[in-house]
């Protein structure tokens, strides 16, 4: 297992370099000029343009700029935002990542505590109206895009029903402000989790050991809880790692709508402002999150499923 982990971690290095090179190249040769953007209303001032380009080191050859950047990233320096000259990229990411991670965690809890029971109920009532209803509702819910779902929730829960006092901002996990964004963020992955649970439970229900457990006269609750669910959710647990990675990096639109100062919002702003240092930093860190999540999932699989072994 140790060797496996070392091998996986070593693969990270070329992967990171490839991601950095591709992103950097796209930013370098892509449309838009960060120097003009930084100049703002002075964009037509050629003298200032040349001076600023030199000051930012953007008038050097591509290879030189790229390797300097790579070296700085290795040392943990992601540079300074082009748009906001007072904002180091590392600081921006350090401030926003915990927010997105907390939001992702809240969504995860919803996904697990709502998605799994719903999947179970659907499977236990297979091909009945309950099964059809649950599947239809989740398909419908997860098909509605966030930018439509969010205003509907706002209007209904805040303005019409007054169930929630406020919708804006971020005050951490134990705040009612997290409810709506976490709920909306959970909607998409919820369907997947519910389906996986439903499918897993249906498969396990037909296994011999379940029939044996029933034949022994065990109560239905014990059969479902101890023998069915525990085995059915094994693939689900491994899937959750990727769901968490998606939730952290995927709350792009949502954070903007709810004014949550998270990682997704940072990506959107940097895209709008062609803020290449932030785009680079968020891409690299986003890729790292997904790779780490994959590694954790693969590693955990060996422990969760005794049939799997890494040599």
């Amino acid at each position: 297992m140790t060797q496996y982990l070392i091998r996986r971690l070593l693969v990270f290095i070329p992967t990171f370099m490839a991601i950095t090179l591709i992103t950097y190249t796209l930013g370098f040769y892509g449309p838009g000029d960060p120097v003009r953007i930084r100049l703002g209303e002075n964009w037509h001032d050629e003298e200032a343009y040349i001076a600023l380009k030199h000051e930012l080191g953007l008038d050097r050859p591509f290879a030189e700029q790229f390797f300097d950047y790579l070296l700085a990233v290795v040392q943990g320096d992601f540079g300074i935002s082009i748009y906001r000259s007072d904002l180091p990229v590392g600081k921006a990411m350090a401030q926003t990542l915990p927010v997105s991670a907390t939001l992702a965690l809240a969504s995860c809890l919803i996904i697990i505590f709502v998605g799994v029971p719903l999947g179970l109920i659907a499977a236990l009532n297979h091909n009945t109206w309950i099964d059809y209803l649950l599947v239809s509702v989740t398909v419908l819910g997860s098909s509605i895009p966030v930018f439509v779902l969010a205003p509907i929730f706002m209007i209904v829960l805040v303005l019409k029903l007054n169930l929630i006092n406020t919708i804006y901002g971020w005050e951490g996990f134990f705040s009612q402000k997290i409810i709506m964004p976490a709920l909306i963020l959970a909607f998409g992955p919820l369907l997947g989790v519910m389906r996986l649970t439903r499918q897993g439970v249906l498969e396990v229900l037909n296994q011999d050991y379940v029939r044996t457990a029933r034949a022994k006269g065990l109560p239905r609750r014990t059969v479902v809880g101890r023998h069915v669910l525990r085995n059915a959710i094994t693939p689900l647990l491994t899937n959750m790692g990727l769901v968490v990675a998606f939730l952290i990096t995927g709350s792009i639109l949502l954070e903007g709508i709810f004014g949550i100062p998270g990682f997704g919002g940072l990506i959107v702003k940097s895209l709008r402002q062609r803020d290449y240092p932030i785009l680079m930093g968020t891409t690299i860190v986003g890729a790292a999150i997904i790779m780490l999540a994959n590694l954790i999932v693969d590693t955990a699989y060996a422990y969760i499923d005794p049939r799997v072994k890494y040599d």
Binding site: P151, Y168, G169, I257, F258
Partner: peptide
Amino acid sequence: WLQLEDKQTQLALYENDE
């Protein structure tokens, strides 16, 4: 000064007296 990029949310906050 709240920094809130979505103008629809801003309007909802206004209608909610926030």
